[in-house]
Design a protein around this nucleic acid. Structure first.
Lengths: 136, 136, 136, 136
DNA sequence: GTGGTCTAGACCACC
DNA sequence: GTGGTCTAGACCACG
């Protein structure tokens, strides 16, 4: 978890940044089902933030079905890239957000080819969930 | 501009929705360089919202370089899909957001192939800026 | 909303009680899509509890898709009995909880007939979502 | 008792899971009045959990009147589906919980007919306490 | 020691 | 005015 970096002067809320970084780590295969996350108090101490802020990030991740929280085992990754297709409702909402994001690039003059190339490059950073996991 | 629809009960701020819809309209070729946008008061009256809200949306679009504001000509589209490559700083920030968005889909179990197919489908909704513009 | 009663000495968390009461009010047709809920601060003052506690209840209701929150319109019911079938995942989890609850009644000696009669009686308190709404 | 399965990464407390599984086993006729339950230490060893946790589960079951605890005979089922009607206080509390659970399904858009069908299906899993007990 | 709840008060963003 | 974020500290429940 020492790979996570948060920006204090960002307009993105701290808890949201934490949530985003964990999601990315899952997608990149750096965290997978069963991986243990630091305790809320621990992570809060590491970043010099309040544990409630970390709690809110974990809460969001749990609501998305990505982690499980228990007083015994703490925070554990519950869902990863190999977990099977997402609920259809998720995909529906995701499409809307993707539409806006892609429109932004196009409106700024990026050619569709370039956009596609960029997206491919990003996707290439995520390991094939059906293939052999990358070594860390 | 009568194609713009905003949701009042959405959790997305009104000004953000306005900004998003304009960006999408540009990407879809419904608005292009030189297109005149309604005045802030006009648009505010149409939607029954405060004109400060519209102003904030236009402000954001101007900061992104997509429109120009002046007292006499009002709001005019300044940049569109055919305007050439975006500033590198934009692309850099965009990549980060795209990374997070794509990671979300992957972490939720969407296969890279499905993600790519979805993105392609969205891109297909935007006209080729080098080809003949679509008729409206 | 003056129909809501919470118990301070219950082992059920306050925010959970609030959430439960709102869910029940929706099921009973006392609240339906578009109904306005009191503001977090208002409701907190009414009950003599902290507004963060109310916030947490509203947060949970939003995550379940039952209400929408916005700084403009406050908390508004977004989903009710007439909103169409729930996501399959919901039903799956619900079945498990129902199984445990019904097992409890059976284990305590309640006959299946009595259990069914009790459940019917409860269901009868909820208006038919396809019929005419009850008058209040 | 080897039919009991507990989830370590569940958010439901372990003692609660144990208690729930025993209640369900009674309702399903797999345990009936006089059945001997494993000792707290035995069960704890089987599951690799602390025996205090098992003790807490047995404690809860005793408080509900479902089992009897004694130093010499250990934990024995005291009440089952054939034990006659439950105390009125139990039924009163149970109704409240059932009301909330059913309201949840209705509020999420499940039709009363579907809810009733689901409940019937669950009830069908429990043997008729007045009929011949199922063979195991 | 873990997560969870509740209180309390500050400040910000939106409208 | 609204909800949202962050901090801070207390206490509880679980194991």
């Amino acid at each position: 978890m020492d790979i996570i970096v948060i920006e204090f002067d960002s307009e993105v809320p701290l808890y949201q940044q934490l949530r985003d970084r964990v999601v990315e780590a899952i997608a990149e295969g750096k965290l997978s089902k069963g991986s243990q996350l630091p305790s809320t108090r621990q992570l809060a101490a590491d970043f010099g933030i309040n544990f409630h802020t970390v709690h809110k990030a974990y809460d969001a991740l749990r609501d998305e079905g990505l982690i499980r929280l228990s007083r015994k085992s703490g925070a554990v990754i519950y869902r990863d890239a190999a977990a099977g297709p997402p609920p259809p409702e998720f995909l529906k909402q995701w499409r809307l957000r993707a539409h806006t994001l892609l429109a932004e690039a196009i409106a700024q003059g990026t050619t569709p080819e370039t956009v596609l190339a960029e997206l491919r490059a990003i996707l290439a950073q995520f390991p094939d969930p059906t293939g052999t996991p990358p070594v860390h």
